[in-house]
Every structure is written in C-alpha cells, then in structure tokens.
Amino acid sequence: MSKPDLFPKKSTAGIAVDPRTLERVIPESRRPDGSLRKQIKIRPGFTPQEDVSRFRGTKQAQMDAHTLPKGHVIGWTPPPTTSASTSSAKSKSAKKNEKRKEKRKEKAEEAVTVKDNWEDEDEDEAGENTKKAADGGEVGSSDRAAAPAAEGSTAKETQSTGDELVETLEKLDVR
C-alpha cells in the first residue's frame, strides 16, 4: 500500500485523510481570534451533505461523459505536430508535386528580381558595364564614364577594381 500525501486533498466539506492514522478527519485550524480548533474525527462511511454529488441517471451520466470541453469548436482538429511523419505517408503523386514546387521555387529565385526603384536600374546598368570592362569586352563612350579605371591604369587594375565593384553591388542587391 502506498503512503498517503503529506498535504492531503480536502473534500468540499474540508475532510482529509490523516497521514499518520489513515483516518478521515477535519484537520485543526485557526480561528480569527488566534485560538486553535481541535481536529475532528469523521465516522467511517459518513458523507456530509456538501460532499454528496447530485444524482444523475445513466443516460444523463453518459451525456455528461461525452460532452465537449468548454470552448471547444465542433470539427476543429489541432494541426499536426511533426511534418516528417506526414511526409512518409504521402502518395507518389504528392511527392512528385512537392518536387515540382521546389523546382518552381528554385527557378523563381533564379529569375529576374523585381526592382524597387527606377534608380536601381541605372545602378544595375553601371554594374553591367563594369563587368564588360572587367571581362575585356568593348566599352562604349557611355560605358567609359561608368568604368572606374583611369587612363594610365593597366588591365589587371581595371579587373580588380571591377571585381570589387561587382562584389559591392551584389551585396547591395536586394532579392
């Protein structure tokens, strides 16, 4: 037999099981004036009126057992906790559709990004022109103004400054 709790649960009438004697008692308590009330023993089998539950017929008891908790919405089920368990139970077509969605997302990421400002287009054109200059391609008269290289610089210097410019532009690119 297990040991009773040190702080036993009380019934509505205040009856608890004494942990030392295992008898039902009303524990001693303190009155408002400071004096102590004695502990009161309860006869075996006695149930005070406060502890008597309301009579419920069998059908009423069954209905009470099957009632939904307060605030419950009929038809609502909580979302699944793990997504890994649902992926293993997917059909072949669902798995194929999932792969297709992933491919679409990848293509969308690779696609041209939407520009926020008209000014961004000018900066991108300048960046493309510097890429052409860094690759050794032709640079037109409008491209020369955008290229950072000076007249006396060599091709290696132009390439290194162009690479630095491209890196800084890529860092600034918002996707």
Results as ranks from 00 to 15, higher is better:
residue 59 K to N: 13
residue 70 K to P: 11
residue 55 F to P: 11
residue 85 S to W: 00
residue 25 V to D: 03
residue 125 E to W: 08
residue 41 K to S: 09
residue 119 E to A: 09
residue 55 F to C: 07
residue 81 T to L: 11
residue 50 E to W: 01
residue 32 P to W: 00
residue 97 N to R: 14
residue 123 E to M: 07
residue 25 V to W: 04
residue 36 L to A: 14
residue 127 G to H: 14
residue 81 T to C: 08
residue 46 F to W: 00
residue 35 S to I: 02
residue 44 P to L: 05
residue 83 S to M: 07
residue 101 K to L: 14
residue 86 T to H: 12
residue 76 W to V: 11
residue 51 D to W: 00
residue 104 R to Q: 11
residue 83 S to H: 07
residue 123 E to N: 12
residue 43 R to I: 03
residue 120 D to T: 07
residue 21 T to K: 02
residue 120 D to L: 05
residue 64 D to E: 11
residue 26 I to A: 03
residue 73 V to A: 06
residue 67 T to A: 14
residue 58 T to Q: 10
residue 122 D to E: 02
residue 17 V to M: 06
residue 42 I to G: 06
residue 84 A to L: 13
residue 90 K to Y: 10
residue 118 W to A: 11
residue 19 P to W: 02
residue 84 A to K: 13
residue 96 K to F: 13
residue 54 R to W: 00
residue 96 K to I: 15
residue 110 E to L: 10
residue 105 K to A: 12
residue 93 S to I: 07
residue 93 S to E: 14
residue 98 E to L: 14
residue 32 P to T: 06
residue 33 D to K: 01
residue 131 K to P: 03
residue 42 I to E: 09
residue 127 G to A: 15
residue 111 A to N: 01
residue 105 K to I: 13
residue 28 E to H: 10
residue 22 L to T: 03
residue 129 N to T: 04
residue 90 K to H: 08
residue 45 G to C: 01
residue 19 P to S: 03
residue 20 R to T: 07
residue 62 Q to N: 13
residue 122 D to G: 02
residue 45 G to S: 03
residue 27 P to G: 05
residue 18 D to L: 03
residue 78 P to T: 04
residue 36 L to N: 14
residue 28 E to Q: 10
residue 38 K to N: 04
residue 30 R to F: 06
residue 123 E to V: 06
residue 27 P to E: 02
residue 20 R to W: 04
residue 92 K to N: 14
residue 105 K to C: 06
residue 68 L to T: 06
residue 41 K to W: 05
residue 65 A to L: 11
residue 28 E to S: 12
residue 123 E to C: 08
residue 52 V to G: 05
residue 43 R to N: 09
residue 54 R to C: 04
residue 23 E to H: 09
residue 78 P to M: 09
residue 77 T to R: 08
residue 96 K to V: 15
residue 38 K to H: 03
residue 64 D to M: 11
residue 107 K to Q: 13
residue 73 V to Y: 02
residue 106 E to S: 10
residue 23 E to M: 08
residue 88 S to P: 05
residue 36 L to R: 14
residue 73 V to S: 04
residue 127 G to P: 07
residue 42 I to N: 04
residue 17 V to A: 06
residue 87 S to F: 10
residue 37 R to S: 13
residue 41 K to L: 07
residue 107 K to M: 11
residue 72 H to A: 09
residue 34 G to V: 04
residue 83 S to V: 13
residue 63 M to L: 13
residue 110 E to I: 01
residue 110 E to H: 07
residue 76 W to C: 08
residue 34 G to H: 01
residue 28 E to T: 06
residue 41 K to I: 00
residue 49 Q to A: 05
residue 73 V to C: 02
residue 103 K to P: 04
residue 102 E to F: 09
residue 49 Q to Y: 01
residue 120 D to Y: 02
residue 22 L to Y: 12
residue 92 K to L: 14
residue 49 Q to E: 05
residue 21 T to A: 01
residue 89 A to Q: 10
